[in-house]
């Protein structure tokens, strides 16, 4: 399809970008454009002005800041996958980013854009949630647990710009896995599970689990997390993971019915937890 007409600006600072956004009620931020352009082309949205934040220096780079890693909002999926800092300190982000679409999309799409877009089917929101990331905007800091409000809706108000994401470093002993279930390599997740597991003495000390596409927002599998605490690896883990879909309300759509998604969440959580725990 063919998008309707819009204006385009590429400001040089976050402040300038904020001004541009403030001056036009129907303005929209664009970063990699990998989610926004399809919406424009299908004429599902009609912004009058696109404010391109993709090259703002404040939104670039991956920085090791001691207790956390700061990932610029405009860092692309591809940069995330290749970042040594991310691989060392918060590999789950890289593991999930590597499953996004195809190389072309990963070279343009951004980490910040994925979160700002707040698509529960996106792979990164569940990761940010599982890792208790903090989203730094042009105005404030928002914990991931408060950031995702509804389907394609974040806590940011119009005109607010996501500058970067603070991903807390988890100490030694943590293992990670992102289990994505999709029909083709380039397809979106039917269900995805982001798992971080801390092991001690052959048992699971602590687990954090974020679920992709199991509701209108990414969700944590809290019941399973609680049941996994201090659990020996073994059949009990499977039983704990059978609670993964509790308190979720997955969609029924072309790609899967809700009951199937619930079932998948249980199976995949088990797989993700075992993998994160380093157990074959």
């Amino acid at each position: 399809m063919i998008p309707a007409q819009f204006d385009y600006v590429r400001p040089t600072s976050v402040q300038e970008a904020s001004q541009a956004l403030a001056g036009d009620d129907d303005a929209k931020v664009i970063a990699g454009g990998q989610s926004l352009l399809p919406l424009l082309r299908l004429r599902l949205t009609y912004p009058t002005l696109l404010v391109d934040v993709g090259r703002l220096s404040e939104l670039q780079g991956v920085h090791d800041r001691g207790d956390h890693v700061f990932i610029g909002a405009a860092v692309t999926h591809d940069e995330v996958v290749r970042s040594g800092v991310i691989r060392d300190a918060c590999p789950l982000v890289a593991l999930a980013a590597a499953t996004v679409a195809d190389p072309a999309v990963r070279h343009r799409g951004t980490f910040g854009g994925s979160l700002a877009h707040a698509d529960p089917a996106g792979d990164l929101p569940a990761v940010a949630l599982a890792l208790d990331a903090i989203l730094v905007t042009s105005e404030r800091e928002i914990p991931a647990s408060e950031f995702f409000v509804d389907y394609l809706e974040s806590a940011m108000h119009p005109g607010e710009i996501l500058v970067g994401i603070k991903v807390p470093k988890l100490g030694p002993g943590w293992g990670f896995h992102y289990e994505k279930f999709h029909r083709t390599a380039q397809a979106w997740a039917i269900v995805g599970v982001a798992a971080a597991v801390r092991r001690s003495n052959g048992s699971i000390a602590e687990a954090r689990i974020g679920l992709t596409n199991m509701g209108s927002v990414p969700v944590r599998a809290r019941e399973t997390e609680a049941r996994l605490r201090d659990l020996d690896l073994g059949e009990a883990v499977r039983q704990a993971c059978a609670h993964a879909a509790e308190d979720t309300s997955p969609p029924s759509d072309l790609h899967a019915q809700a009951d199937y998604r619930r079932h998948l969440a249980q199976v995949l959580t088990h797989r993700a937890v075992r993998a994160a725990a380093g157990s074959p």
Binding site: P38, D102, R183, T184, A185, Q186, A187, W188, L254, H255
Partner: peptide, 16 residues
């Protein structure tokens, strides 16, 4: 038609 885009009408690629 629900499968009017390539996100909904799934074509396999070499990776699949």
């Amino acid at each position: 038609l629900l499968t009017s885009t390539m996100a909904d009408y799934l074509l396999p690629s070499a990776a699949d």
